[in-house]
Design a protein around this nucleic acid. Structure first.
Lengths: 347, 347
DNA sequence: CAGAGAATTGTTACCGGTAACATCCATCGA
DNA sequence: TCGATGGATGTTACCGGTAACAATTCTCTG
């Protein structure tokens, strides 16, 4: 609280050189005589000198900081992404500046300007359907994009104007449906986040395609909350089971994400269904807790952390590709939430 | 990427005043004639001008940013704390700069110096036993403490040199033990994080005290991993059950935290024990997933988010109390992991 | 051994604000 | 009417680096 850090001038004076030379030593410029470098370095070490990040940012017009824009750290999926991004960034000498989107109300434009005025090296956005489709978010990103590169992990959209990373869910979803089919399931439904999910692309398409291919029936629609939280999953499961007639009810659900699966499992259990005997559940994201649910939750792995790491790398690479999309595959991680062996259930 | 933000000089010129006046308007100084203020404000609004955070930080010698030091965002407990802290800070115009402690290897002193050189308004540290007892972490904090106020959420320790927030677990632990006792449990053990936990304070003391008060036996010691992760809980549960003789084995465990409880429950389930009939489990932290385990996990609520919010408030208050501790109570949140009613199990 | 060219090092002008201090002007009491 | 008083505004010196450019010193060749 009371100490004052040594400045570059203190070091320069003590080493008998100019500030510029100290800068060169600090930044590893090749144009310094070894003897000089050593002399300066000695003084630097002696004082434990570290340049002022603030002054450096102002002088150089850029900061080794990356802005992270995300819905909420309370969702462990995003928390894990941020964690991986931080690891990757720090390893390269960069650090993260956080911005959680306001869950309600518009994005404060003052915050956006503040973000821009920090001269960040880039912005890393992550979000789901609910986020990337918000008009204020789009506007925010387009404004930010005028000043720094952006990389995002989010559902693909037209005219995003920046690199967007996402997963090709086709094969994993087909795999999931086949997995359920092999275990004897005939009626399979998608649950959670679905209102938008269903009309917005690959997830639903692959799902329906595979059902048709296997000549399985499509479960009738029912009223949905359609959100992505555990509470939403709980409610959607309830509505599904109460609104459909017994013979229409699915015996297996493919959930929007693992949180929805968590909520759905709770609901099914409360309704007296046995998992996986009476109801099979598959999640998405393959979060850490999938190993610890009862039964352990089969889930689609989206390679989230690889996404995060490569997003940081992309952001820091000199050759930012301003419009390309980076697609990763996804795989089904089989645990026990759909049953373990063929034949345990009456077909 | 191509645009350049307007500077304070652009605004000053266009408004026909000096930069100092623009600064006054921006910072709401009272010494500005209303007419002037309005004139300047108009130009500011027209340009959507926002001052450079970097320049402001350098000029003023302080930044409206708080450094957050934590073990890992992958632990949803810390993620939730950070999330709450961010909400509270942002509401006051501050933002967060992240630093996750390296899980292995020493803390990089360059990172520490970098943190210090950012002129942060303060540092908010959170960690468990494993963290706060690390010598390099202690050194880091003591170094940081020379330049900015620190507030921490961590187990209380001597000579920490800054405000430390923690919970008085006494009543909750007694409550937990009584809860288990009322449900008919005789043999109760603590699980996870225990090697250090047991010799370091209130948790174990309250636990043993209550056992004695209720004239319950103490479960013999067994070899422990003693960590705080779900995998650690899994292993500790295994060791406990295999190393103790049948008649020594507890029928209820009080876990170091909810993750340990999650792992332990998995292990118990794998061993064929029914939860809660054969084994009761209590966690600690009352994390979001406690509602979704099977059975829902009874847990000790530590008011984590209140801690986080008040930590930020404390950090930003002018009257930082440099040595006081802030203690919050904790309460047992009863769900179903210990059974729901008296008498369901043979006594 | 002189001069060219490369390697080092120093100078200096920012970067974009902040804050202490100086200045100016209007109001007010003696 | 004049100086005192105080509010409004301008001036200027930083904050602590960076980077372009200038200057100086080597090194090597003809």
């Amino acid at each position: 609280m009371e100490e004052r850090k040594a400045t570059i001038y203190d070091i320069a004076r003590e080493a008998g050189v100019s500030a510029a030379t100290v800068t060169r030593v600090m930044n590893g410029s090749p144009n310094v005589r070894p003897a000089t470098r050593e002399k300066v370095q000695r003084v630097i070490d002696a004082h434990g000198y570290a340049p002022s990040t603030v002054a450096r940012d102002l002088g150089s017009g850029s900061s080794k900081t990356i802005g992270i824009i995300l819905p909420s750290l309370r969702n462990p999926y995003y928390a894990a992404l941020v964690s991986a991004a931080d690891d990757e960034a720090r390893q390269r000498g960069y650090s993260l500046w956080l911005y959680q989107l306001p869950r309600e109300g518009e994005i404060d434009s003052a915050v956006v300007e503040n973000l821009i005025s920090r001269r960040l090296s880039g912005a890393f956005f992550m979000g789901g359907f609910y986020d990337v489709d918000r008009p204020d978010l789009r506007e925010m990103l387009s404004r930010i994009g005028k000043y720094m590169p952006i990389v995002a992990i989010c559902p693909p959209r037209e005219n995003l104007g920046f690199v967007c990373m996402f997963n090709d869910l086709n094969s994993a979803i087909r795999q999931a449906v086949r997995h359920l089919h092999l275990l004897g399931h005939q009626r399979i439904a998608m649950l959670g986040g679905a209102a938008r999910l269903l009309d917005s692309g690959q997830r639903a398409v692959a799902f329906v395609d595979e059902l048709r291919y296997l000549r399985l029936p499509e479960v009738p629609e029912f009223e949905r909350v359609g959100g992505g939280s555990a509470a939403d999953g709980e409610q959607d499961a309830y509505r599904m089971m109460t609104q459909l007639r017994p013979e229409e009810r699915p015996t297996a659900v493919l959930c929007y994400n693992d949180l929805v699966a968590l909520g759905a499992m709770k609901q099914f259990r409360q309704m007296g269904l046995r998992l996986p005997e009476d109801m099979a559940v598959i999640g998405c994201d393959n979060q850490f807790f999938c190993d610890y649910t009862a039964p352990p939750l089969t889930s689609i792995d989206m390679q989230a952390e690889e996404h995060a790491r490569s997003a940081i790398r992309e952001l820091l690479s000199t050759t930012v590709n301003h419009s390309a999309a980076i697609v990763r595959s996804s795989t089904l991680v089989v645990r026990e939430s759909c049953g373990v062996k063929l034949g345990w259930r009456k077909l």
